[in-house]
């Protein structure tokens, strides 16, 4: 009797645990597709509106892409160059203004990143490679919430091979 009970417990476990694992795989897979919309940001900033509809140049807010490794993100002051006059009473702008006035910077969620052992630099890609922002970042002009790009090494190396760019490990990225 005891051995049959023991057997059944085992049988249940053999079914239940893989089922749970399969379930979690599906769950996280689903999660992942949700993630494709990109993370929710503390302020509902829309790249579609700014870069797409209003056609503000990428360079206006990210002015260092061509001369530094980091493109830079706009300082909070910059938002109010326009929003002092444009929809200043919009709830999200009011929220942004509160942050600004309280000296409390908005903590944007980072959407695009590479691992720490990759030393990516914008300048050579933009200035000498002549790449358009969208080639790596996707059509941000069409996105409200930015969608992250999975920058695996293949992503980089395919392009580097095509364009005969640096292929040396250290001199290029991994130092």
């Amino acid at each position: 009797m005891a051995s049959r009970k023991k057997h059944s417990v085992r049988r249940v476990l053999y079914v239940a645990i893989p089922a749970a694992i399969l379930g979690s795989i599906l769950f996280f897979h689903y999660q992942h597709t949700v993630r494709a919309f990109g993370p929710e940001q503390p302020i509902y900033f829309s790249h579609r509106v700014h870069a797409g509809v209003k056609e503000i140049s990428c360079n206006f807010c990210h002015p260092f892409a061509e001369r530094s490794r980091n493109p830079g993100i706009p300082e909070m002051e910059k938002c109010f160059y326009c929003h002092k006059h444009v929809i200043p009473t919009h709830p999200q702008i009011v929220k942004e203004r509160q942050h600004y006035e309280n000296n409390d910077p908005v903590q944007w969620k980072k959407v695009y990143y590479v691992p720490d052992h990759v030393k990516f630099m914008h300048k050579p890609h933009i200035k000498w490679g002549g790449l358009e922002c969208a080639e790596c970042h996707g059509e941000v002009k069409t996105m409200d919430r930015l969608q992250s790009v999975d920058f695996q090494m293949k992503f980089c190396i395919t392009c580097h091979r095509q364009r005969e760019a640096q292929l040396d490990c250290w001199l290029a990225c991994h130092h």
Binding site: I73, E75, M76, N103, P105, V106, Q107
Partner: peptide, 8 residues
Amino acid sequence: RTLVPYIS
């Protein structure tokens, strides 16, 4: 990861 902007 977060990105923290300057105020000014």
